[in-house]
Amino acid sequence: MKISVQVNEGPYQHQASDSAYNFVKAALEKGHEIFRVFFYHDGVNNGTRLATPPQDDRNVQQRWSDLSKEHELDLVICVAAAQRRGIVDDGEAERNGKDATNIMDGFRISGLGQLIEAGVQSDRLVVFGD
């Protein structure tokens, strides 16, 4: 089955990203296809590579990135939400004249249409949020 997931909260502040990660991992292990994981609202903060969590804690951002590499996951950060919160890739840095980027490997920034498309294309869309 084709499943997509929406993550609406940032890492550490809220458990939503952890729940979504565990769900996606279990779905993959059961042989389902994860069509897309869409990060919205503060969820875009799951895609920064500049975080340094304590060593005795999980690394939420890195964990998503690793899972993406392992399973070729499509991790999409909403551009409108990212612009408000300062998540930047090369294209965004150039377009908006920023002096740095911070996007984590494995994530890409794209439009809200990607969320709607995920809803249309997937058999299920599961929302994790506050």
């Binding site: 059961k30 299920r124 994790f128």
Partner: peptide
């Protein structure tokens, strides 16, 4: 949890 999502006929989160 995955089975409940896959086997049901829709899912809604009360966020």
């Amino acid at each position: 949890f995955v089975d409940l999502v896959a086997n049901g006929d829709g899912v809604q989160s009360w966020v």
